[in-house]
Every structure is written in structure tokens, then in C-alpha cells.
Amino acid sequence: MSELLGIILAGVLTHNILLTGFLGMCSFIAISRDLRASLGLGLAVTFVATFTAGLNALIYNYFLAPGAMVWLLGDSARSIDLSFVSLIVFIAVIAGFVQVVEMVIQRWFPLLHGVLGIFLPLITVNCAILGVSLFMVIKGLTPFRATVYGFASGAGWALAIILMAAMRRRLDTSAMPRAFAGVPVTLLLTGLLAAAFSAFAGMEF
């Protein structure tokens, strides 16, 4: 139990995928202009990261990893290593998952579609989602722990973008050099936020 808690706290605070892993910066900078949109995108990223990490971990652990197909083909499969196609498979799973989710919530959950609908297409090219799946392989997580890790990373990303959107609301009314407005000031604030988050690093769990 304390291990799962450790994964969650690390994913959200000390090992935040945006503030320490720099993933998902493009949409972070573009969308954090607007607080409502940030909430929606944050939710969508958390949702998709959780499920695609789990799905990709299942596929990786039972089909792609070196010797993973022993359960299916017997001992002769010990030397089969399909990990070189993981990248293409992960991308396909993410794109497919986003497509299916979009169709499902459009059909049955119109309210949710109103909140998440416009963000889902943005997610396929959000590197945080693919990043979670790639890191999960390197960390050698089981499907269950990968799902927890995906959730934690997504939640950490959401927390960062929501905090940034809240800060940027104040910027609208602040005076600053014209060339500094927009991207530069957002990056500077992200840097300060990252510095603040690194203070969690001494935390013991």
C-alpha cells in the first residue's frame, strides 16, 4: 500500500511529468491561457493517461517484451522479442483509445462530451500520454502499477496546468514589457513553479 502511495505522490509532486519531465509543454503553454479549458484538458489527460498506460502495459507485458509470449506459445517463444514495435503499437493504442472514447461519450454521455469533447483530439499528440507509456516500460511496471502510475502522472499534469492557468489570469492585468508577455512569462512562471515543487523532494514516504 505504501508503495502505491509512493507512486502517486511521486507522480503528482516530486516527479511531476510536466515540471520535471518537461512533457506536454506544447498544449500546456497554449491552453493554460484559459482556466476552464485547462480544467477540461487536465481531466482528459488524466483519464486517457490512466487507461492507455494500463492497456499498453498489458500489451507490452504479455506480447511485446522479450520472452513475453511464453504463456501463449510455450517455451519456444522465450527468444521472441517484439519490443522494437512498441512505439508504433503504443501510438496506435493511444490514437485508437481516444477515437473510441470520443465516440462513446458522444453517444452516451453528452454532458461529459461537452466538457472533454474538444480536447480529446489534442491528446493523441500530447507527449505526456506517450511519455507515460514509454516510462512505464523503462520502470518495468506491472499493468496494475502502470495504471496507478498513469493516473498519478496525468493528475500531476492536470495540477500543473490548472495552477498555471490560475496564475496567468493575474497576468492579464499586469504591466510588463510587450515582448515578455505570452510564452516567455509563462515559461518563467513554470520555472518558478518547478522550483517550488522541487521543495517536495525532501519529503519522506
Binding site: L19, T20, F22, P177, R178, A179, F180, G182, V183, P184, V185, T186, L187, L188, T190, G191, L192, A194, A195, S198
Partner: peptide, 24 residues
């Protein structure tokens, strides 16, 4: 700090500022 994450953001911010200044 330059090697750590905050340093990366701050350098990128200053460079982006310089570039936007040139663009303006």
C-alpha cells in the same frame, strides 16, 4: 540550478523573450 528543471525553464524563457523582442 541550470542543470535542474527550473533552470531549463528559466533559460528557455529568457531566450524566448529575446526572440520575441527581435520579432516585434
Amino acid at each position: 540550478v541550470l542543470v535542474a528543471a527550473p533552470g531549463a525553464f528559466i533559460i528557455m524563457s529568457l531566450l524566448a523573450w529575446a526572440f520575441q523582442y527581435m520579432k516585434e
